[in-house]
Design a protein around this nucleic acid. Structure first.
Length: 246
DNA sequence: AATGTATGCAACCGCGACGAA
DNA sequence: ATTCGTCGCGGTTGCATACAT
């Protein structure tokens, strides 16, 4: 039972994008918006698969991209977020306006890993390279657990009652806005209908609408800004966390 | 100047999640 | 409840460039 290919590979270009292809993609999206990626290439006159178009747009052509070097503040933010979220590059990117998950992932692998190693910090555990001492950013590492999404929430609910070193662990995050009101970069209309009831549920009526920082026990801190978010995607993330718990 | 090696980045691949039928 | 199509994510690859010898 094989999976059908995402596109007709025999008639698609691969590899680096040409200026002409870029222009076609940009002008099409400017005119029609980010619609269905699968049909976009044909409509735009591109011999590319939809995935390739999406990637090119998100990682390179989007007008709101920053480009350029990462600042020291961005470095530190990425390190902290990675300590909390693990290799969830899209979530990390959501906290860094103008940066893409791919860019951050590359930057992590080429720069920050080395930076941490030079500090004597293990880039995966965020703890000291030698010795099993408590990690510098000791939030449960999603990539190290069997159920990453559940672990993030479990760490909140369970450690709140069990105490432990949670308070110590939080110290590294207190200056972070962890209301993962992740401004997921451009969702397709199909998946983020403005008319979806999620918005209102997230902001007012639903008791389920609790931001991740609340889940992590930060609701009494300045880090929590769930009450300010209007982003329906917040609830999407939260809902998944909720589901993972049950 | 030529060659080898390291580095950085763009792009691809495979898989899981999700919604619609 | 199941299947199918699509999207998005994370890991990996491969090319271009920089740097060293």
């Amino acid at each position: 039972m094989g999976r059908s290919p995402c596109c007709e590979k025999a008639h698609t270009n691969k590899g680096a994008w040409t200026k002409e292809e870029d222009l076609k993609l940009i002008s099409y999206i400017k005119a029609h918006g980010e619609g269905c990626w699968r049909s976009l290439p044909k409509a735009a006159g591109l011999l590319r698969c939809g995935k390739s178009c999406r990637l090119r747009w998100i990682n390179y052509l989007r007008p709101d991209l920053k480009r350029g070097n990462f600042t020291e503040e961005e470095d530190e933010l990425i390190i902290k977020l990675h300590g909390l979220l693990g290799n969830k590059w899209s979530l990390i990117a959501g906290r860094l306006p103008g940066r893409t998950d791919n860019e951050i992932k590359n930057y992590w692998n080429t720069h920050i890993k080395r930076k941490l190693l030079s500090r004597g910090i293990d880039p995966q555990t965020h703890g000291p390279i030698n010795g099993g001492a408590t990690a510098a950013f000791a939030a449960p590492h999603p990539s190290e657990t069997a159920a990453p999404k559940a672990s993030a929430t479990d760490s909140c609910d369970e450690t709140n009652s069990s105490g432990g070193s949670q308070d110590d662990d939080r110290d590294g995050y207190l200056d972070l806005n962890l209301a993962l009101s992740i401004s997921l970069p451009h969702r397709s209309p199909k998946r983020s209908q403005p008319s979806e009831p999620l918005t209102s549920a997230a902001t007012s009526s639903s008791p389920q609408a609790i931001c991740l920082c609340c889940h992590l026990g930060f609701q009494s801190s300045e880090a929590c800004s769930c009450h300010t978010t209007q982003n329906p995607h917040v609830l999407r993330v939260i809902r998944r966390l909720e589901e993972a718990q049950h």
